[in-house]
Amino acid sequence: MIEPSNPKPRMTAPAATPAVRAAAEARGRAAEDRAAAALVADGFVVLARRCRTPAGELDLVAARDGLLAFCEVKARKTLTEAAFSLAPRQQARLLAAGEWWLGQNPGQGAAGVRFDVLLVDVAGRVRRVVDAFRLE
């Protein structure tokens, strides 16, 4: 039996050049720096940055008065675009990464644990969405 060929070839984006990747990395680090500064200004202590776990990376882990916050930083042209850039699959990855981190750091989060999203726009403005999502 002859199988029909796929009439629509799969379209993939061209690979980013090293310069494009380096620029994106620099923008991401600058956004994380802004987000960390906003957390510190609000009385948090940043415990970890870019924490790699078997489940994925946690951008920032911060604590204040026993409250532990796993923070995802989203940088886009506008705060609105940043707010809509966290997909459910990424939320699940962050929940798993947070669980791993808690397993490695017992005793943290005695006053509670939450997942915050810090939005950063092109002008460097930061808005924090407190307790942005939870394990259902």
Rank of each mutant, 00 (worst) to 15 (best):
N6M: 13
A38W: 15
I2A: 13
N6K: 13
A16E: 15
P9R: 10
M11I: 12
A111Q: 13
A26N: 00
R27T: 02
F133M: 07
P7F: 07
N6W: 09
V46S: 03
E136F: 01
P14K: 14
R50L: 02
P7G: 08
Q104S: 02
R34P: 00
R114S: 15
C51G: 00
M11H: 02
R21T: 12
A26H: 08
M11V: 09
A48E: 15
R50H: 02
N105C: 07
R114Y: 14
L58Q: 02
W101V: 01
P54C: 13
P7K: 04
E72Y: 02
G103K: 04
A26E: 13
C51T: 00
F133T: 10
K77C: 03
S5E: 12
A83V: 04
R10T: 12
L86Y: 02
D33F: 00
Q104C: 01
V126T: 13
R76G: 03
L118Y: 07
L102H: 03
A30I: 00
V117R: 08
L47K: 08
Q91E: 07
L94N: 05
L67R: 14
A16T: 09
T17S: 15
Q104L: 00
A36I: 04
C71P: 01
V61D: 09
A23V: 07
A132G: 11
L135C: 04
R27Y: 00
A87R: 09
Q90F: 01
R64V: 08
R50K: 04
V73P: 01
E136I: 01
V113L: 13
S85M: 11
A63H: 09
G103F: 02
V122Q: 11
A96R: 15
V73H: 10
A123W: 00
R34Q: 10
A123N: 03
A26F: 01
D42A: 15
L102C: 09
E57K: 10
R128P: 07
D59K: 07
G109H: 14
A31F: 03
A110Y: 01
G43T: 11
A75W: 09
I2G: 06
A111E: 12
L102N: 05
D42Q: 15
A69R: 13
A30G: 00
D121S: 08
V129E: 12
A38D: 15
L79R: 11
Q104G: 00
